[in-house]
Design a binder for these strands. Structure first.
Lengths: 149, 149
DNA sequence: GCCGAGGTTTACGTTAACGTAAAGTGCTTG
DNA sequence: CAAGCACTTTACGTTAACGTAAACCTCGGC
């Protein structure tokens, strides 16, 4: 499965290299995640991304890519960019954070966690609803006999 | 718990009654679900609710209440009112729906189901992320010794 | 040297989902 | 009967999250 067709040009050592940290253009990321470049620039403007610049051009590294991925995941779950930023920024400010900040971060995390749990419950309930609706729909469909339409 | 203070004026039979189908005012529902009346009227305007009228005043029955509940649940999961209406309206149009409509409903349901499953996965992943961030935060916190701040 | 593909900034436009304010109706309560 | 409360309609305002358009740079290839 994970066996690529490349002839392993230089198999000297595949161990924990200094992480060649690939870089991406804005267009690449846009295609990769099926969003527009406008969206990516907007996220930057909202403080969710901070790519380097080569001249005027944005250069995204692996970490930026992950951040974008997490942001989009948050969006799919219905979080606002502000909520997402809250966590992302705290996370980045962590290493040199003081106690107050760290405790605040833990609070926020607990909050999000609660949020996610309620969402899980909501999903469960909605799945049951859908099951029910589908069952009824199939019943009605069956009761229509096999001719009409 | 469910023991009201009313002296049970007529306890002739508590079995499956013809469902006394309680009714609600817009204000009651608003408090019940912690939304504004504006929101409820807006949902009606968007075709998600259709309460009776006593004169000019809206009268909501049990079914309306459930619909509101489902709508708000959908919102918590990040669905748009349009998406929610899609299902709700189809559901109501079901009994006299023709085959094409029913099949369309089944399609929509399958779609929603897929959506929910992806959300479940997103939640799982995000929970892992949060676990990770929390772990790190606690580590940093511990490494700060027990004095500063 | 020019041209197209991709990048950039600036700025106005749009949509969803309500908020908010104004002005009116209807009941019941002191 | 006036006051107050809960309801109503109408209509303009607001916010988030982008879309869209214009006008510009820059670089590799023919």
């Amino acid at each position: 499965m994970t066996h690529s067709s490349s002839p392993a040009p230089d198999a000297s050592q595949d161990g924990p290299l200094p992480r060649q940290t690939r870089s991406y253009s804005i267009g690449e990321l846009a295609k990769m995640f099926e969003v527009t470049t406008r969206t990516i620039r907007f996220y930057e403007q909202e403080g969710l991304l901070a790519p380097e610049r080569r001249g005027q051009t944005r250069i995204y590294n692996e970490k930026d890519r992950v951040r974008l991925k997490l942001t989009l995941r948050g969006k799919r779950l219905g979080f606002s960019l502000a909520e997402i930023r809250e966590v992302v920024m705290m996370y980045d400010a962590m290493p040199d954070g003081n106690r107050r900040q760290l405790r605040r971060l833990l609070e926020i995390l607990a909050d999000k966690r609660g949020n996610l749990e309620r969402q899980q419950e909501d999903i469960r309930l909605m799945q049951l609803e859908i099951d029910d609706v589908e069952r009824r729909a199939r019943d009605v469909l069956a009761s229509l006999g096999d001719q009409p339409d």
